[in-house]
Design a protein around this nucleic acid. Sequence first.
DNA 1: CCAGACGTTGTT
DNA 2: GTCTGG
DNA 3: CCAGACGTTGTT
DNA 4: GTCTGG
Length: 243
Amino acid sequence: MCGRYVATRGLDDLAAEFEAGFEAGGTAGSAWRPDHNIAPTDAVPVVLTRHRSGDRDGPAVRQVRVARWGLVPSWAPDTRRAGKLINARAETVAELPAFRSAVRRRRCLVPADGWYEWAPRPDGPGRQPTYLTPLSGEVLAFAGLYELWGPDRLLTSSIITTAAAGQLVAVHHRMPLVLPRESWAAWLDPGRADATDLLVPDLGLVDRLELRPVGPAVGNVANDGPGLVERVRTPAEAAPTLF
DNA sequence: CCAGACGTTGTT
DNA sequence: GTCTGG
DNA sequence: CCAGACGTTGTT
DNA sequence: GTCTGG
């Protein structure tokens, strides 16, 4: 699944990477810093197609904005449960009340360097924190949804998940849905009401991910920094060979 | 017609 | 917002 | 997702 | 065990 991830590219780099603009300053383009330990309710960069804030009748343009991770439906009475809707299952997203309008009209991309899973250890207790990231170092784009809530138009987002595929089955039975570059434009096209056909995992992309064991520090959301994604030896690797 | 509900995912 | 229940 | 908290009563 | 906070 996807409950913790990494994004270190600056908003300007993301704008270039995704051929988007971004609104420096103001509510839509609030400051954002690289984060090696993004947790639910944190600020996250997203890419969406929308008229610029304050230009409601202007053309829809592709933009990088900073959202809060954890979708708040427009009809929610408050934002207290904001940390709950961090993921939406691809299998049900079109039907569920919390997501169905967003998947029709408010799709976004969620840029990431990679994400974490806590993988079962076949030969030991506990779980192994694992960082998943493209071998190429290319940016990932998770399929996402967004909502605008309340008079201040609070921007919140969610990441779509699907059944784990390929080598990722060893780590977890769910995974974020990573969209290949050729699908970005279609996913962001607000004129397209049904984009569910794009919610198919790209197996080549999945197999070009590195599964890197990392230390336990990532578990605590107070920790951050590049040290979190440094490779460690797993207990199995560190143990003397038995028999 | 109005009132009221409706949040999801993943885990063991 | 949209659907369900009454 | 993980880490860490989670005290009750009576009162306004 | 379950909920909250990050």
